[in-house]
Design a protein around this nucleic acid. Structure first.
Length: 843
DNA sequence: GCGGACTGCTTACCT
DNA sequence: ACAGGTAAGCAGTCCGCG
């Protein structure tokens, strides 16, 4: 049954599509829309009469002979679809079911089916061609959403770019509005809850035995509300001096009234954001409300829909975005935020991104005075809001743009990883072109699972990038050239796609991929190459130049550019991941083979031009003191001969290499320092060493000439000597000496009793006695090297500072600074090259 | 019983 | 739950050694 919304619900105004969901009542697609005029969420169901289906290669008669009852199969048709792998227009049997839940039943009986595992409401998006995050108006005559032309950003695509992008089979027309359309201004609120509990135990929604004592809200109109439970046993305390002046505090004697009020507030907003609300705040709030209702025999209506299977919480008339999930996403962390945070806690992310952390606590949350509790909780709500809206809504805009391009509902985008986004984009594009979406096995059977190359690392499937041995020493005036988006460029330029690699044409076999036995099709443009090439070119040809120009649109261009960067940078990786539906090992293998070919040829070319190459990694060349002409020459050569763009990335005033790859530091002309890979920068280096390392770099950053090194070196020696002495006198605190290592798997899975594993076991013994939650995978373990049987002691259990293993820490100081000195001394030539040991150095 | 050479495990980084 | 390449530290094993 299709539910047509009453026209009064649908004034002829504009809507932004936020999300689609499975609608249990109609057993169809449910759509969440943002009503631009009334600034609220409208929920409706399919008005298009779209039907669930899947495909089979069995002829119509064979499917008919299966005698499906009408409640399982509604209709069977023969249609034609293009099969890219076979290069044919194939007749397929389309099996149409009355409801989405029948599709799996058909799949079980028919056996091999296609497109039967795509969620129905996602199918709806691909078929109706409605784009999440985009603007539509409602046409009551047609009962349809019509795309709305809106350009409030004032963005447009220049003619020249337009022409360059027109080669991509109509993609510009399809995606143009994704880029240029504005992001709606919606009511947004952040929410955080605090509960009563006992030391060391984290409350669980499965057993919501502790009262909720505080719920805080912060919205994008500047309103901040704190709901707090009056507890006789807690004093009011003193209002902290920098409590937000906007904060409105509401006190409740009864918890149930506090909860009811919180639901009232939540219902007013379109976007509700939390940090870990999918797994803690909302499940707990929901279950606590249920428990109170039952215990007190009253009615409390919770608007929270807790989906235990998906581990998510949602609202029918609102969209929940859990920022923990978003910031946890590896592609977002690395490409959108440049690894500005290394831990996925609210505090670490807020520190890294906003420069503001959580309120530091001296006692447990439930022991705080009322004002301190409100202060703490409201700060959490505020920084959560800021993590969605900082820098003119950068993260929210990023989410919208990625949703549009990947045809992924906004809330789903936040909860899923980049491979799902790329998969969704490819699903959409196959549908749009009338191509059958292949099953993963289809690609594997035809293209094979055997790599043409041999990986250097044991256990990897194929060979990756080339890394050049660095020339150790100090090098002044170093230019770094980078291949622009190397792998995506290769995929596009060399037409790499699951159907074009190892194609069936004899005549294409001469079109070889270097260093492999592969060949690539010369007749057909690959779908993967086309889509990736398009997105890469939109970014390179249009967005990157615009993002550099001074204009009122600059900021939005930058966000667009970053969104595409996320998709582009991850696109090669997913093709080499066997969990990805379009996984094609030969494509990934060929991509890196072309990459190795490019960097290797570029090195030869540099040498032919008499430029010395100091280092190179994957897509970069570090050139010593090249002239402008030499650089121009090699850039020109690359475009013409390799078909891949090479760009001047940066210049270092000087650069210091040791003999190690992926380890160096450089100083820019403005004296800023960049460090790569060195121990002093790693998060498992104790903080006293990280600090010493930073101080040494600060001294070296001041150096502008070779002559100044002697002076700088003396200072550095003094500094390091100071660190030695402080260590020997045991003047460093346990916290400064602590080594922080992540427990990446559950304790029982470790095959080796590594130091952090031993420390974790000690912690667990202690926790068991105290009846506190045990360590979990993902947690950071802090420990100190000690002269004890385990050789380690957890920071938490460190009582006797005299147990510190001074010898072990001395060798850590050694190896940290040897990385720098090894390189410096070769140039300074005061000490023999090779293994210069700091201990010898001082004697 | 103990140290050196070796392998493998583990983490954190680079592109 | 996107890829492979590199460095480092340490656990564990084997071997030799009157």
């Amino acid at each position: 049954m299709t539910h047509y919304p009453h026209n009064s619900l649908f004034p002829e105004t504009d809507y932004f599509v936020l999300s689609t969901v499975y609608d249990a009542e109609t057993n169809g697609a449910g759509i969440k829309l943002f009503d631009v005029e009334r600034k609220k969420v409208i929920y409706t169901t399919d008005t298009y009469g779209h039907e669930p289906y899947c495909y089979s290669y069995e002829p119509l008669e064979k499917i008919q002979a299966l005698n499906f009852p009408p409640e399982t199969v509604k209709r069977i048709e023969t249609i034609k679809k293009r099969n890219l792998l076979k290069e044919s227009e194939d007749p397929l049997t389309k099996i149409i079911t009355p409801t989405p839940s029948e599709v799996p039943k058909v799949r079980d009986i028919v056996g091999e089916t296609w497109e039967s595992r795509i969620k129905y409401h996602r199918n709806w998006i691909y078929d109706i061609q409605i784009v999440p995050g985009r603007r539509y108006w409602w046409d009551p005559d047609q009962n349809k959403f019509i795309p709305s032309q809106s350009k409030s950003h004032g963005l447009d695509i220049p003619k020249s770019v337009n022409n360059q992008l027109s080669k991509y089979s109509g993609l510009l027309e399809v995606f143009r509005d994704d880029f240029i359309q504005e992001i709606p201004d919606m009511p947004i609120v952040a929410c955080d809850i605090e509960t009563e509990s006992i030391e060391g135990q984290i409350p669980q929604a499965a057993d919501p035995k502790y009262p909720i004592i505080c719920i805080c809200f912060a919205d994008n109109q500047g309103k901040e509300i704190a709901l707090v439970l009056n507890r006789k046993e807690r004093n009011k305390g003193i209002k902290p001096i920098d409590t937000s002046p906007h904060l409105q505090v509401e006190r409740f004697d009864a918890e149930e009234d506090l909860l009811k009020r919180s639901f009232e507030i939540l219902k007013q907003y379109t976007i509700i954001t939390t940090f870990n609300g999918d797994n803690f705040d909302f499940p707990y709030l929901h279950e606590r409300a249920k428990k109170l209702a039952k215990d007190l025999k009253i009615r409390i209506y919770s608007p929270i829909k807790w989906n235990r299977r998906d581990k998510s919480c949602d609202f029918k008339f609102g969209l929940h975005l859990d920022l923990y999930r978003f910031y946890h996403n590896v592609a977002i962390r690395t490409y959108a935020f440049g690894n500005r945070y290394q831990e996925e806690t609210l505090d670490a992310i807020a520190q890294g991104i906003l420069g503001i952390g959580k309120v530091a606590l001296e006692k447990a949350i439930f022991d705080l005075s009322e004002w301190d509790l409100v202060y703490y909780c409201s700060r959490d709500a505020k920084i959560t809001l800021d993590l969605l809206l900082f820098e003119n809504k950068t993260p929210l805009n990023l989410i919208f743009i990625l949703s549009r391009i990947s045809r992924t509902p906004i809330d789903n985008l936040v909860r899923t990883s980049v491979s799902n986004w790329v998969k969704s984009l490819f699903f959409y594009e196959h549908r749009r072109r009338g191509c059958l979406i292949p099953n993963q096995e289809d690609i594997q059977i035809i293209k094979g699972t055997q790599a043409s190359s041999k990986a250097i690392i044991k256990g990897k499937k194929y060979k990756g990038a080339t890394v050049i041995d660095p020339v150790p020493g100090i090098h002044f005036n170093v230019a770094v050239l980078d291949f622009a988006s190397l792998y995506p460029s290769i995929i596009s330029t060399f037409n790499l796609s699951y159907e074009t690699l190892l194609c069936s044409h004899e005549e294409c076999q001469k079109n070889k991929v270097p260093q492999t036995g592969y060949w690539v099709c010369e007749h057909n443009r690959g779908i993967v190459a086309d889509v990736i090439g398009f997105i890469k070119d939109v970014r390179v040809q249009w967005l990157k130049p615009e993002a550099k120009k001074e204009s009122s649109q600059k900021e939005f261009y930058q966000i667009l550019e970053r969104s595409l960067k996320v998709l582009i940078n991850a696109s090669y990786g997913v093709l080499g991941s066997d969990r990805f539906q379009f996984y094609c090992l030969p494509v990934a293998d060929a991509t890196t083979a072309y990459g190795r070919d490019a960097i290797e040829k570029a090195i030869q070319k540099s040498q032919a031009l008499d430029i010395s190459v100091l280092y190179g990694d994957t897509d970069s060349l570090f050139l010593h003191n090249p002239t402008k002409e030499q650089i121009n020459e090699i850039i020109k050569w690359s475009k013409e001969e390799l078909g891949v763009g090479l760009e001047m990335e940066k210049i270092y005033r000087y650069l210091v290499f040791s003999e190690r790859k992926k380890n160096y530091f450089g100083v820019y002309p403005d004296s800023s320092v960049e460090v790569k890979g060195l121990m002093g920068k790693k998060r498992n280096t104790p903080s006293f060493l990280q600090k010493g390392f930073r101080e040494v770099l600060a001294i070296l950053a001041q150096v502008t000439t070779k002559e100044e090194f002697d002076e700088a070196k003396k200072q550095v020696i003094n500094l390091i000597r100071g660190i030695y002495q402080k260590l020997e006198k045991k003047q460093y605190s346990a916290a400064e000496l602590a080594i922080t290592t992540q427990l990446t798997q559950p304790l029982h899975r470790y095959k080796v009793q590594a130091q952090h594993v031993k420390a974790a076991n000690q912690l667990n013994e202690y926790y068991k006695k105290k009846n506190i939650d045990l360590v979990k995978a993902g947690q950071l373990i802090r420990f100190i090297k000690t002269r004890t049987t385990d050789r380690v002691t957890p920071l938490l259990l460190m009582t006797d500072i005299s147990k510190v293993d001074v010898k072990a820490y001395k060798s850590m100081i050694d190896s940290t600074f040897d990385q720098l000195f090894g390189a410096l001394d070769i140039e300074v030539e005061e000490i023999a090259t090779g293994q210069v040991n700091l201990m010898e150095f001082f004697s």
